[in-house]
Write a protein that binds this DNA or RNA. Sequence first.
DNA 1: GCATTGACGAAGG
DNA 2: CCCTTCGCCAATG
Length: 127
Amino acid sequence: MKKAAKLKITEEARPAHKPYSFFEDVYDVVRQIPKGRVTSFGAIANYLGTRLSARMVGWAMNGAHHATPPVPAHRVLNRNGMLSGKAHFATPTRMEELLMKEKIKVENDTVIHFEKIFWDPAKELEI
DNA sequence: GCATTGACGAAGG
DNA sequence: CCCTTCGCCAATG
């Protein structure tokens, strides 16, 4: 489901009690990341058609905490496979722990074999 | 309403 | 190869 999220943002605005559709799109993609796999902000942004707005994906994750159903934000890393958002979790080690549970090895705040378990929505999901 | 700030990323020096 | 700058755009002061 590739849609003009960018346009919907400005159009639908946000009802406050409801998140931006762009955010929902991000959440939707993140929720579809297979267990044991990870992706990057850029990949998601690219899938949504806003390749140059990877920051927005990160910003979207800000609301992922109170999003329902829950969003596995720990599977989203920066392009280097680093746990850039671990500071935003309940505890600084929460993100790493969640990844470890999925057999994903983390070392020095970076996912090992990142390219190997990388999951590109634009490629794996729909095109 | 302008300025600053990001869970980013690519390009330039 | 490391560091800086710039683009992107919503949110916040």
